[in-house]
Computed example of a mutant assay.
Amino acid sequence: MNTTALIRPAWTPATIALMVIGFMVFWPLGFAMLAYILWGDRLDGFKRDVNRATDGIFKGCRKASYRASANVGTGNVAFDDWREKELARLDEERNRLEEAREAFEEYARELRRAKDQDEFDRFMAERNRSNAPAAASKRGGKSTPGLLDE
């Protein structure tokens, strides 16, 4: 999102004023503005998910209309054969590109998961390292490794 926009999902003077005016005019408008301020940054992901879902739903409709229009011939057998082959090749190319996109999304998802796991492991190591001297002094100098200290 454009961070220089006057009305953006953040606590800016403009959004606060719109929220207050919304509550004064009609209270659901105020709540709508409050929801936009709090959760508006998630709208892009929500819109992307909705678009992907509707694309999946209407994919069959597009294929059916595409096939219906492909069945109309020009009367020239050679041209119609060439057209069929080209349309089949384009379908294969589209499927290949869709598979590549899905593979990349899976790769990016795994990369984010690995990064999150690395950050979590680093956090736990720092936490255990900072808790180790305090735990050792409580037990009289004895230190046992583990997350669940008694």
Rank of each mutant, 00 (worst) to 15 (best):
V77L: 13
V50Q: 09
T74K: 14
D81G: 04
D80V: 08
A70V: 01
G60V: 01
E98G: 07
L34F: 13
E105M: 15
L34T: 06
L87R: 13
L87I: 02
R42I: 03
E105K: 14
N95K: 13
Y36G: 07
E106D: 02
F104V: 09
D80Y: 09
G40Q: 05
E86Q: 14
G75V: 08
A108Y: 13
Y66E: 01
N76P: 03
F58D: 00
F104M: 09
G60I: 03
A35E: 07
L34Y: 04
D91I: 01
A100H: 15
E93N: 15
L90E: 08
E106R: 15
N51F: 13
I57W: 12
E106A: 13
A108H: 10
G56N: 07
R94F: 11
I57R: 12
D41K: 15
G40S: 00
K59A: 13
S65D: 00
L90Y: 12
E105W: 15
A103G: 08
I57K: 09
R101N: 05
E93A: 11
V72D: 01
L43G: 00
W39I: 00
K59M: 12
D49T: 03
R101G: 03
M33W: 05
E92W: 06
R67N: 06
A32S: 05
V77N: 09
Y66V: 00
N95D: 15
N71F: 14
G75K: 05
W82A: 08
